[in-house]
C-alpha cells in the first residue's frame, strides 16, 4: 500500500509563536490518521500546509504523490478540504453551493448537478437543499461544508474538526460517512480534540502538542505506552480517604492519586481480576465504604495526560456544552 500523505520536518512560525515545530507524519492510502491535540497545538496549521493554503518556513510535504509547494495544482485536484469553520456561501442555497464547487472542480454542469443531489441526500439536507444557507443551523452548515469537500470524490480528504458542533446523531452519521469513504479507498486526515473520536475512527493516531507529533500509533499501542490497567475507586462519603489511600498503596506498590472533591482514587495495578477481589477484601477489612470500584484500561485521555502533562481540554477557552457536560459528570461522579 502506498503513502498518501507524507510530511517531514514542517516548521511554521508566526513571529515568536512556533505553530509547527518540525512536524512529521505519514498516512497510508485508505487509512485514517487522527491528529489529536489541544487548542493551539498546530493541527489547523498542519492541515493548511498540507492543503497548499500555507507555505511552511521549512520542511517538505507530499500529498497524493505531489509536492505541495512545487505542484500545488496537482495536489488540489486530488484533495477535499473541510476547514475548522464552515466555508459556505450564505446567499446561495445548499444545492447551489455544491454545484458551484463541482463547476470549480471542472466536473461539468450535468455531473455537478448530479453530485449535488447525491450529496444533499447523503447528508440529510434534501429538505433544506433549496433554501439559502443563511437559514441553516450550525450543524447543517457543517454538514454542507463537508459535503462540499466530497464533491469531486477526492482520494485524499482533510477534515479539520469535522464533528465539532454536531449533535450526537449527526456525529454518528458523520462517523459512518467517514468510515464508508475509507472503505472505498479514500485516505483521511482528520483533526480532533475528542479522544473517543480518534479512538473510534482513526487507524493511526498522532498526538500533537506544541507543533510536533509527540507520539503516534494505533489507539491500543498508545494506551499500552501509558502502562497497564488501573484501579479506580470511589469512596462513600464519610469514609476516610487516608485509609483508602493506604490500602491502595499496599495493593499498587505506589501511592494512588487522590481527588478529594470527587472522593476518587486511582492507582496502577499489574494483576487482573484477582486484584479487584483482593482490593474489595482489603478495603472491607479496613472499613472503607465503596461507592464504585473498577479496573480500567487507560483511556486516550490518560495517554494524553501522561504524554503532555496536561489534560486534552486544559486550554479550552470556550467550553462547548459537550465539554461542560463532561466536566459536570466528573465533578458529580
Amino acid at each position: 500500500m502506498g503513502v498518501a500523505i507524507r510530511a517531514e520536518g514542517l516548521v511554521k512560525r508566526y513571529g515568536s509563536v512556533v505553530a509547527l515545530d518540525g512536524m512529521s507524519l505519514q498516512v497510508e492510502e485508505a487509512t485514517v490518521l487522527g491528529l489529536l491535540g489541544p487548542n493551539g497545538a498546530g493541527k489547523t496549521t498542519a492541515v493548511r500546509v498540507l492543503t497548499t493554503l500555507l507555505d511552511p518556513d521549512s520542511g517538505t510535504a507530499e500529498v497524493a504523490g505531489f509536492d505541495v509547494r512545487r505542484h500545488p495544482d496537482e495536489v488540489r485536484r486530488r484533495i477535499g478540504l473541510s476547514g475548522q469553520y464552515a466555508a459556505i456561501d450564505e446567499y446561495l442555497t445548499g444545492r447551489e453551493n455544491l454545484q458551484m464547487v463541482g463547476r470549480l472542480y471542472h466536473l461539468g454542469k450535468a455531473h455537478s448537478r448530479e453530485r449535488a443531489a447525491e450529496l444533499l441526500e447523503r447528508f440529510d439536507l434534501v429538505d433544506a437543499g433549496d433554501r439559502i444557507a443563511k437559514t441553516y443551523s450550525g450543524g447543517m452548515r457543517r454538514r454542507l461544508d463537508l459535503a462540499a469537500s466530497l464533491v469531486a470524490s477526492p482520494p485524499v480528504l482533510f477534515l479539520d474538526e469535522p464533528t465539532t458542533g454536531l449533535d450526537p446523531r449527526s456525529r454518528l452519521g458523520m462517523w459512518d460517512v467517514i468510515s464508508g469513504l475509507v472503505r472505498d479507498g479514500t485516505t483521511v486526515l482528520l483533526t480532533t480534540q475528542y479522544l473517543e473520536e480518534a479512538d473510534r475512527l482513526a487507524d493511526t493516531i498522532a498526538v500533537v502538542d506544541h507543533g510536533r507529533v509527540i507520539a503516534s500509533g494505533t489507539a491500543d499501542e498508545l494506551k499500552s505506552q501509558v502502562g497497564g490497567d488501573r484501579l479506580d475507586l470511589v469512596v462513600t462519603a464519610g469514609s476516610p480517604l487516608e485509609t483508602a489511600a493506604a490500602v491502595l498503596s499496599a495493593i499498587c506498590g505506589v501511592a494512588p492519586t487522590v481527588d478529594q472533591h470527587s472522593r476518587r482514587l486511582l492507582g496502577p495495578v499489574a494483576g487482573g481480576a484477582g486484584t479487584l477481589i483482593e482490593a474489595i477484601r482489603l478495603l472491607d477489612e479496613a472499613g472503607v465504604g465503596i461507592d464504585d470500584l473498577a479496573l480500567r484500561r487507560p483511556s486516550l485521555d490518560d495517554v494524553f495526560l501522561s504524554l503532555t502533562g496536561h489534560h486534552s481540554e486544559d486550554e479550552t477557552v470556550a467550553p462547548t456544552s459537550r465539554r461542560q457536560r463532561r466536566q459536570a459528570e466528573r465533578s458529580t461522579s
Binding site: 493554503l53 485536484r77 464552515a86 456561501d89 462540499a148
Partner: peptide, 13 residues
C-alpha cells in the same frame, strides 16, 4: 473572513 477564499484556494481553479 468567511473562509470562502480558503475554500476556493484549495480547489484546482
Amino acid at each position: 473572513a468567511k473562509g470562502l477564499i480558503d475554500r476556493f484556494r484549495s480547489l484546482p481553479m
